[in-house]
Design a protein around this nucleic acid. Structure first.
Length: 175
DNA sequence: CCCTGATTCGC
DNA sequence: GCGAATCAGG
């Protein structure tokens, strides 16, 4: 699978929103987190343009001039997380997008007409009707505006909560 | 052991 | 350019 413009755009957005490489890889469904990290580095995003305010300061310096290959630790010192210090006690998740992203990172399942929203794009108000196979790339959710009193939009609520089918009397009851 | 990101290098 | 392997660290 190639890094199309769309995929790069989605990767960049999710990364900058603070999602982990694993989460992003899981959403794409067909790549590993190593692929995500590798691409992030090649794109020069490793510094996290919008550092998550909810991840504790983490990057530690590797002692200089050690481990020429592999190993972990930033290649250069990273400034302290100013945002974290400036806003102690922020408790909300990262800001929800102004509108539903309506992105399709992978193949669009054919079974549903509407857009599929990935797990990471779900908002409070998103219909959570699952679409596709959770184990397959492209799995997502309906994502349209959900009803006020349930997890689904009206259309899917009607499907989920249809009255119990008229039960035929069992043979025993019939007899 | 689970996870995180960083780095190198064979492809 | 890509990403598996491999690393240190939480």
């Amino acid at each position: 699978m190639a890094w199309t413009e769309e995929r790069v755009a989605l990767l960049t957005r999710l990364w900058n929103e603070g999602h982990t490489a694993s989460q992003i890889a899981e959403q794409f469904g067909d790549i590993t987190r190593n692929a995500v990290i590798g691409k992030v580095h090649r794109l020069g995003l490793s510094g996290r343009a919008a550092e998550s305010r909810f991840r504790a300061a983490r990057i530690k310096m590797r002692p200089r001039n050690q481990k020429p290959r592999g190993g972990s630790g930033a290649a250069f010192p990273v400034q302290g997380n100013a945002a974290l210090k400036a806003e102690p006690g922020v408790a909300q998740a990262w800001p929800a997008p102004a509108r539903r992203p309506n992105l399709r990172p992978v193949e669009q399942p054919e079974s549903e007409a509407g857009p599929v929203v990935g797990l990471l794009e779900l908002r409070e108000s998103s219909c959570r009707w699952p679409i596709g196979d959770p184990d397959q790339p492209g799995f997502g959710f309906c994502g349209c505006q959900k009803a006020e009193d349930g997890p689904y939009c009206e259309r899917h609520a009607a499907m989920a909560f249809q009255p119990a089918a008229r039960r035929r009397p069992t043979e025993k009851e019939a007899a």
